[in-house]
Simulated scan of single mutants.
Amino acid sequence: MDKVQLIATAPMGLEAIVAREVRELGYDDVMVENGKVMFQADKSAIARANLWLRTADRVLLKLGEFPATTFDELFEGTKALPWPDWIPEDAAFPVEGRSHKSQLSSVPACQGIVKKAVVEKMKTRYGTEWFPEDGPRYVIEVALLGDIATLTIDTTGPGLHKRGYRKLITEAPLKETMAAAMVLLSRWRPGRPLVDPFCGSGTIPVEAAMIGWNIAPGLRREFAAEAWPTLDRALWDEAREEAYDLLRDDEPLDIVGSDIDPAAIEVAEAAAKKAGLAGELKFHQAPVAKLWPAGDYGCIVTNPPYGERIGSKDEVEKAVRQLGSVFANLPTWSLFALSPSKQFEHYFGKHADKKRKLFNGRIECNLNMYHGPLPPRRD
C-alpha cells in the first residue's frame, strides 16, 4: 500500500506522549518536533491514527515541504505537489495558514498564493477553468516556519478532543486530550482505584475508563477524511472493526468522581451515559475535605479549580490545602494534579516528586506528580 507522510499535532509538552501512542499503533518511523509528531505509514494509518490517538489535536496529511523566501517560490513549490492525487474535481479546498519567523509574514497573502497554485495544478489534471467546490472538504494548511513552507491537508475535521460524549460542559472544562494525557502519565491501570475529587464535567473519569477498557477515543465520531472519495472507505471499516475487536469491557473498573457542585455531577453523569459508561463510573457530590478513597495503591488524578478558571483565591488555596490533608492519610496512593499556581506545593504541604510543564488551553500549568508505592506484583 502507498506510503504517506502524516503529522499528529500535539499540545506543547505532550509531544512525547503522542509519539508513544503513535509507536504503540505499530508505526516506528517517528520524528518529534515542537508541537508535532511526524511519521510515515500506509494509508490505513489515516483512519487508525484518527480513531486511536488520545492526546493529539489532529492528524494532517503532509503533501510537501520546501524552502520559500518569496511568493514565487511558494507558488512554484505548491504547484509542484500532487494535489489532484487527493483532491477530486468537485472538492471544497479552503486554505488556512500560519507564519512564524518567516520572510513571508502576511498569512492572507500566503493563503491566496497557495490557493492559486493548487487551482493551477488542478486545471492541468481536470482540464477545466472553474471548480464548483460543493463536494467533500479538504482543508489545506500552509505553515511557514523560518524559510520552510509545509503544506498539509487536515484529515480530522473538528479536533480530536471532540469525542462525542460531552454535550454539556461545566464552566471551565478540561480538554479530553489533556485529561487522557494526565491519566496516561499517572501510569494508572485497571485493578487500581482512581479518584478525581474536582471532577467537573467528568472528563478525567470518562477518559480513564476509556483507557481502562481500551476504547478507541474516536469510535463514536466521524472524521473529515471519511468523506474523501480518494481514500478507500474499507480502510475506515477495517479500522473500526479492529477497534471493536480490541475492546476490553470485561475489565472491572474502580473509578470515582466527586465535586462540590451538584450541577457538575449532573453534567458528569450525562457524559458517562453518553460514553456508554453509566454503570461503570461512580459520581457523588462532596467537598474535597470529605474525600476518603477506598482501597490501596490508587491514583488521584485531578485538575483543581484555580483563579483563572473558577473560584476566589482563598477558595482555591483552601481546596488545595484540603487535598493535601487528605493525601497525607493515603500512604499507598499516588497523586497527579494539574495547576498553574506557583504556590501549589506550598498550599498542598509537600514538594512534588516530579513536575511536568503542560498547557491547559493557553494557560501554562504544571502537572504536580506525587508517586506512591506501586502495587505488589500478582503471581
Rank of each mutant, 00 (worst) to 15 (best):
W213H: 13
D232S: 11
E241I: 08
A234W: 10
A239G: 01
D245Y: 13
G212H: 07
Y244R: 15
A227T: 13
A224M: 14
I204H: 06
D245G: 15
P205T: 07
W236Q: 00
A234L: 15
I211S: 11
I204S: 06
A239L: 04
E226V: 05
A208G: 04
I215V: 15
R220T: 01
A243Y: 10
L246H: 14
I211L: 15
A225R: 01
L246Q: 14
L235S: 06
Y244F: 15
L231H: 12
G218T: 01
G218M: 02
W213D: 02
T230F: 11
E207D: 10
I211C: 12
G212K: 06
W236S: 03
T203S: 08
T230I: 11
E222H: 13
E207P: 10
D245V: 12
E222L: 08
A216Q: 01
E226R: 11
A239D: 00
L235D: 02
A216Y: 01
G212M: 07
G218N: 03
A239P: 00
V206K: 04
R220H: 09
W228S: 07
Y244H: 15
R240H: 05
W236Y: 13
E241N: 13
R233N: 06
P205D: 04
L235H: 12
P205E: 04
R220A: 10
A234K: 15
L235K: 06
M210L: 15
P205Y: 09
I204R: 02
D237W: 12
A216L: 03
E207A: 08
I211A: 12
N214D: 09
A243M: 08
W236E: 03
D232Y: 10
D245P: 00
A209L: 11
A208L: 04
I215M: 13
P217R: 02
I215Y: 09
